[in-house]
């Protein structure tokens, strides 16, 4: 792959550093159990909802918007994203660092920052990588989890 950034205009670059949140999330036993069942967890502590699996927050931190805010593909318009010339979205990947486990009754706050936008040349055309830094803290302000998440527009 070669790196060029012809598609990344100054208007797009100006979005880097913007953030949203913190969004408050209440951790409930029922939500943990639903996630544990749907992901095929085998450990009792997850299936009983005593503790949240590490990737539980991947879904739990999704902003909740009303039906008329969802597009024809089903997805909401991403609020923390500059207008990009490539429209089809793929999940990239995540990297998470854990500081403490989550249990029912915990309240966490999720803050998301647009950390980077860059272009790469893929095998079938240009790709734009959008990188978010996500910081999850608890009610005492202590770190729960740090995550770097990327999405790819092609």
């Amino acid at each position: 792959m070669t790196t060029t950034d012809a598609l990344i205009t100054d208007d797009i670059r100006a979005w880097i550093g913007r953030s949203e949140g913190p969004q408050r999330i209440d951790i409930t036993r029922r939500d943990i159990i639903k996630y544990a069942i749907a992901t095929g967890q085998r450990q009792e502590k997850y299936l009983r909802g005593d503790e949240a699996p590490p990737m539980f927050l991947f879904g739990a931190d999704r902003p909740l918007v009303e039906l008329d805010k969802l597009g024809p593909d089903g997805l909401r318009a991403e609020s923390l994203l500059p207008p990009l010339p490539l429209k089809r979205v793929m999940a990239g990947g995540i990297k998470q660092r854990y500081h403490r486990k989550l249990r029912p009754g915990d309240v966490v706050f999720v803050k998301r920052t647009l950390a980077d936008v860059y272009q790469k040349q893929g095998s079938s055309g240009p790709l734009i990588f959008v990188v978010y830094e996500i910081e999850v803290t608890d009610a005492d302000g202590q770190l729960v989890m740090q995550e770097t998440q990327s999405r790819i527009n092609r």
């Binding site: 069942i37 749907a38 095929g40 879904g59 999704r62 089903g74």
Partner: peptide, 18 residues
């Protein structure tokens, strides 16, 4: 199983059910 996963993570993207 895919329906339940997308419901649990509240993902309405149609490529997972339509």
């Amino acid at each position: 199983s895919l329906f339940l996963y997308n419901a649990a993570v509240w993902n309405p993207h149609r490529i997972h059910f339509d």
